[in-house]
């Protein structure tokens, strides 16, 4: 079982269940009062009702207990997310406009496609080569930002074999919505075969042929994507800002 997914889904169900009860309570009471105490049904309002200390205490204390329980549930799940198993395998993730770059322990690299062995804990070091990105794998309920100039951490457990979407969740410019990828969880043997296969021509494996492009959907835009000097990004070529650095240079500096 994937512990993080379970914890996130359980706290979600817990919060939503209480919320639905509260919403129903408020809405039903409101609608009932509007009909029961309409001008017609209740021509004389009771002017003596202006408040009740008992009720005020009740609807301060009970919600307080409920939200503290919600906080605790959320905290429990979070603790699991941050509790990175010490023997987890490491993958370095770098977000670039607009694709994902993965680097394994043995220097094997891959773009867009993240191949992982089944039944392993995987730790990620998240970095960015240019602007903020966010590494998001909805199926595993985890995300963490990739911020230039620092390294963030995240982990998950690969439970089932299959392909899962990777999305960039922090807005990063023109092709933000095409900064996608796949987690491919395979049996360990198949993984070892893949990770140790060194391409003689280039060491990069990709889900799709040219870096950062998207299959089929936007042919015209994807040509622009491959070029670093897209009109949205200021590069060294821009005369106005000599101080600004090419995104690729900044990555080197950070290392």
């Amino acid at each position: 079982m994937n512990p993080i997914v379970e914890l996130v889904d359980n706290s979600f169900i817990f919060i939503v269940a209480i919320s639905v009860l509260l919403l129903l309570g408020v809405t039903v009471a409101m609608i009932y009062f509007v009909f029961r105490y309409s001008e017609k049904n209740n021509p004389k309002p009771d002017q003596s009702i202006t408040g009740s200390t008992t009720l005020e205490i009740l609807w301060t204390v009970i919600p307080l207990i409920l939200v503290l329980a919600m906080f605790f549930y959320g905290y429990e799940g979070f603790k699991e997310m941050r509790n990175i198993p010490p023997n987890a395998m490491l993958v370095k993730v770098t977000g670039k406009m607009w694709f994902w770059h993965f680097e394994y322990d043995n220097k094997k690299t891959s773009d867009t496609l993240l191949v992982l062995p089944q039944g392993k804990d995987v730790r990620f070091e998240l970095m960015s080569a240019d602007v903020n990105h966010s590494f998001y794998v909805p199926a595993f309920r985890v995300k963490e930002d990739c911020i230039p100039g620092r390294t963030n951490h995240m982990w998950f457990h690969t439970t089932n074999i299959g392909e899962f979407d990777i999305e960039c969740a922090e807005y990063c410019g023109m092709n933000h919505s095409y900064m996608l990828g796949k987690v491919r969880v395979v049996p360990e043997k198949e993984y070892l075969e893949w990770v140790n296969r060194v391409d003689t021509v280039k060491k990069t494996d990709s889900l799709t042929a040219p870096t950062g492009t998207v299959p089929g959907t936007v042919k015209t835009d994807s040509i622009k994507t491959t070029q670093p000097k897209v009109d949205t990004t200021k590069t060294t070529g821009n005369k106005k800002d000599t101080l600004k650095v090419n995104p690729k240079d900044s990555l080197k500096k950070n290392k």
């Binding site: 919320s19 919403l23 408020v26 809405t27 919600m70 799940g77 997310m81 969740a169």
Partner: peptide
């Protein structure tokens, strides 16, 4: 009151750490 209650209560999902990490920026 009805709509704002939904807005407020879903805020609780975003306040809780575990669920927020999944649904933030979505």
């Amino acid at each position: 009151i009805f709509i704002f209650s939904i807005g407020g209560l879903t805020g609780l999902v975003l306040g809780a750490l575990a669920t927020d990490i999944h649904v933030t920026d979505t």
